[in-house]
Computed example of a mutant assay.
Amino acid sequence: MQNALFVGVSSQMAIQRELDVIANNMANVSTTGFKARNSRFQEYLMPVASADSFESPDRRVSYVIDQGTTLDLGQGPIEQTGNPLHVAVRGEAFLTVQTPAGVRYTRNGALEVNVQGQLVTSDGHAVQGEGGPITINPQETGAAIGPDGTVSTNLGVRGRIRLVTFAKPQRLTSEGGNLYASPDQPQPAGLAGRLESGALERSNVRPVVEMTRLMDVNRTYAMVSSVITRLDDLRGTAIRRLAEVA
């Protein structure tokens, strides 16, 4: 009976983690370039006794272990905006940006020019070119971004946006603000990543799918809670009856 309670608790902890992931996905349905995450769990079988004196072998007790989340790198829908500084990232590439915490990576292609003339994201993070930050003077006109990330104005090429990919993108960790950090060194994207100017990649979260998952998880949580309650009541009844016999 005690094992059954432990199994129920491990299931509830896993379900709570799943709820947190779904809630975060739903909160970012409208976030530019957001990539959904999915929970990943593993079954853990408790070691069993090996003595040969038992009349029947022990039953294997199965627990649930949270193995983190996986990043869904599927392409989000592309929305045309007409803004020449907006870029939708196609493929599995990421923009490189400079943040107060260091170099980070993002799919947020809502770019603009700040008061210092630097090309930045909508959150104010400086977009990194192959030679450092990209600067556009206020007097320049006709700003455009090519598919390979080349930024040009009426005065010529101002730089090329640094697009990168990762050999193991699932090792990327979310840091909030639609930013990712990686323990691995990035690689030049090459043909693995292209930019579409005048457009933005929207979130790849599918609200209908997430709502369905949410309903399933809530039903499962309620079912597990009910089982735990019945087991607890059964244990209490057993203790009372044993006390009456004594």
Rank of each mutant, 00 (worst) to 15 (best):
V64A: 13
Y44L: 14
Q67P: 01
P207D: 01
G129A: 08
L234S: 14
V227K: 12
R235C: 03
G177Y: 06
V208E: 11
P77I: 06
A101W: 00
I78A: 00
P188F: 02
S226M: 02
T81V: 00
S39V: 12
G109D: 00
L45P: 00
P207A: 07
S226Q: 13
L179T: 14
M26A: 13
T237R: 13
M1H: 04
V64G: 07
E55Y: 14
A49K: 12
A181H: 03
A110G: 00
V64L: 08
A143P: 15
N38R: 13
S10N: 10
T150Q: 09
F41Q: 09
V157E: 14
L163V: 02
V29T: 15
T212M: 12
S197T: 09
P188Q: 12
V217H: 03
V120C: 03
S30A: 14
Q67M: 15
I78E: 00
R17L: 02
G198T: 05
Y44F: 08
Y63V: 02
D66A: 11
L95A: 11
S197K: 05
E244N: 00
A27Q: 03
V89G: 01
A222F: 00
D184H: 07
D52N: 15
N25G: 08
S11W: 07
Q75W: 09
K168G: 11
G109Y: 04
T229M: 05
Q80V: 14
V209G: 07
E140P: 03
I228F: 06
P47Y: 11
